[in-house]
Computed example of a mutant assay.
Amino acid sequence: MSDHQKKATAYWKENVRYLFILLAIWFLVSFGAGILFKDALNAFKIGGFKVGFWFAQQGSIYVFVILIFIYVRLMNKLDEKYGYHE
């Protein structure tokens, strides 16, 4: 295996690891907080709304947008690390 192929394989493995971690966070927030743990979270309120309801309606979308920015930042660092930046 050439040096370029090793570098590309390592890059891809790290990229997939980032994807799985970020998708797991999104799953926990959207499915976990919005559905599974809704009853426990509804004991608290944000802006007059129950937290479980808020996560199901708004919070998971906000977290998803934040995760997009985190992914962009991680990928920019990864590109620089492996020499794929512009």
Rank of each mutant, 00 (worst) to 15 (best):
Gln57Cys: 05
Val51Trp: 03
Ile25Cys: 01
Ile46Pro: 00
Tyr11Gln: 04
Gly47Gln: 13
Leu67Val: 06
Ile61Asn: 13
Val72Asp: 02
Ile25Arg: 03
Glu80Trp: 02
Ala40Ile: 07
Tyr84Phe: 15
Lys38Cys: 00
His4Glu: 15
Phe64Asp: 06
Ile70Lys: 02
Asp39Val: 04
Gln5Asp: 13
Arg17Thr: 12
Ile68Asp: 02
Phe64His: 11
Phe44Asn: 12
Thr9Cys: 07
Val63Met: 11
Ala33Cys: 15
Glu80Asp: 06
Ile46Ser: 02
Ile68Thr: 03
Ile35Trp: 11
Lys13Tyr: 10
Lys50Phe: 02
Asp39Ser: 14
Gln5Gly: 01
Ile70Cys: 09
Asp3Glu: 15
Ala40Ser: 13
Tyr82Ile: 02
Lys81Met: 01
Leu22Phe: 12
Ser30Asn: 12
Phe44Lys: 08
Leu22Cys: 04
Asp39His: 08
Met75Arg: 14
Phe31Pro: 00
Ile70Leu: 13
Asp3Arg: 09
Ile46Asn: 05
Ile61Glu: 07
Leu41Lys: 02
Tyr11Ala: 02
Phe20Tyr: 06
Val51Ile: 14
Ile21Met: 09
Ala40Phe: 11
Gly52Met: 06
Trp12Met: 14
Gly83Met: 01
Ala33Phe: 15
Trp12Val: 10
Leu28Ser: 09
Leu23Val: 09
Ile25Asn: 01
Asp39Trp: 03
Arg73Ile: 09
Ile61Pro: 00
Ser60Gln: 15
Leu19His: 08
Asn15Ile: 00
Ala8Gln: 10
Ala24Asn: 03
Trp12Ile: 09
Leu36His: 05
Gln58Lys: 14
Val65Thr: 04
Met1Gln: 08
Gly48Arg: 05
Leu74Met: 12
Ser2Phe: 00
Ile68Ser: 01
Ile61His: 10
Asp79Ala: 10
Phe27Cys: 07
Glu14Phe: 03
Phe55Pro: 00
Asn42Phe: 07
Ile21His: 01
Ile61Ser: 10
Asn76Gly: 03
Phe44His: 12
Gly48Ile: 07
Asn15Cys: 06
Arg73Ser: 07
Leu78Asp: 07
Asp39Met: 01
Lys13His: 09
Trp26His: 13
Phe37Val: 05
His4Phe: 07
Ala56Met: 09
Ala56Glu: 12
Ala56Leu: 13
Tyr71Trp: 14
Tyr71Arg: 13
Ser60Trp: 14
Ile21Leu: 15
Asp3Ile: 08
Val72Cys: 08
Lys6Asn: 09
